[in-house]
């Protein structure tokens, strides 16, 4: 691919990002030049933003409007497109008639067409629902890596549709945002028109409001815990003070941001590290207990068994046997 072509694709990608669509990617070429480095870094940036968009929705779930952009494909037994929703045509830059009757593989990138072929070959055996990762290629050459959910529909007479493939994405769409914003305003306007009646907006139970600084502090808390699992972080009050925040913000803010409580997060990370050390290390359990901040060997063994269904000794033995 020439420099000019790649730059044009980059421009298209940036335009799409400007319009709030962060799920496009630029196809990589085999080159190792400055343009390719730029492509690589912008692709990575798009990945981070796409994730952050979902994540931010999580942080302020009562505020942010999250849009779900969906592509639906109805496919026949051979994987040819029987029907497709207009949204998918828009996202892929094709007109409806160009897609109907085409095998799905035509709009996949080279790498994932193989995944799709393999899937078509073996899916019939077990039926049911599947999730696979496919990368779509738009007419303009941009890529859309997507988690796809496939449902099989069997034995409907006279219906050639055999499976439905669905793609879910997040996006910000200004028009829809305005519509939703407009709604309560109109209500207030209308009710003000009626004399004597006041527009009372029901106060919703407020969630913890996190400023950028709060988020930074909570992220710091996470990385401190992650890098020092051996440490005892109780009481939380002291940990919060060390971070320059209060227990309330740390406790509820952490839950808001990561969807998990501080202690549970700590427990999970300790177990995760312990598991790797048990499986691939040969250090005695006593030192793993210390390294990962468990109270005692008995406590460690109990928690471990509860989580993984095997005691540390059993897992080490099993891994050892497997390796040999």
């Amino acid at each position: 691919m020439s420099k000019k072509k790649r730059l044009k694709k980059l421009r298209n990608l940036l335009l799409e990002m400007g319009a709030g669509k962060f799920f496009y990617r630029v196809e990589r070429s085999g080159k190792n030049d400055n343009v390719e480095a730029l492509v690589s870094v912008i692709n990575m940036m798009a990945e981070e933003i796409e994730e952050a968009l979902v994540h931010q929705g999580y942080v302020n779930a009562s505020e942010t409007i999250k849009h779900i952009v969906v592509m639906h494909f109805m496919l026949d037994a051979e994987g040819k497109i029987v029907a497709v929703n207009p949204q998918a045509c828009t996202l892929l830059c094709y007109v409806y008639s160009e897609l109907i009757g085409q095998p799905l593989i035509q709009i996949l990138d080279e790498k994932t067409s193989k995944t799709w072929e393999d899937y078509l070959e073996k899916e019939q055996e077990d039926g049911g629902e599947h999730a696979i990762q496919l990368t779509f290629k738009t007419k303009a050459g941009l890529l859309i890596p997507s988690a796809c959910y496939i449902s099989l529909i069997n034995n409907i007479k006279g219906c050639e549709v055999e499976k439905i493939l669905t793609v879910v994405k997040h996006s910000k769409k200004q028009v829809a945002l305005e519509d939703e914003l407009r709604e309560p305003v109109l209500k207030i306007y209308n009710s003000e028109g009626l004399k004597g009646e006041k527009a009372v907006a029901e106060p919703k139970p407020k969630k913890v409001r996190l400023t950028q600084d709060d988020i930074k502090v909570i992220e710091d808390a996470r990385s401190l815990m992650l890098n020092d699992l051996a440490r005892d972080f109780r009481p939380l009050k002291e940990f919060a003070l060390q971070l320059g925040t209060n227990t309330f913000k740390l406790k509820y803010g952490f839950k808001e941001l990561y969807g998990i409580s501080v202690y549970r997060y700590l427990r999970n990370e300790r177990l995760r590290k312990a598991k790797v050390l048990v499986q691939y290390g040969d250090s005695p359990f006593k030192s793993i207990v210390q390294l990962c901040g468990f109270k005692s060997e008995a406590h460690f063994s109990r928690t471990f068994k509860k989580e993984f269904g095997l005691t540390p000794t059993e897992l080490r033995k099993k891994t050892f046997l497997k390796r040999d």
Binding site: N32, D33, N34, E36, A37, S40, V41, M44, E48, S223
Partner: peptide, 16 residues
């Protein structure tokens, strides 16, 4: 330069 350098810089900055 160019690709592996930019990937490592991005990783060091974003993933800490």
């Amino acid at each position: 330069p160019s690709i592996s350098e930019v990937i490592s810089r991005f990783y060091l900055l974003a993933n800490k």
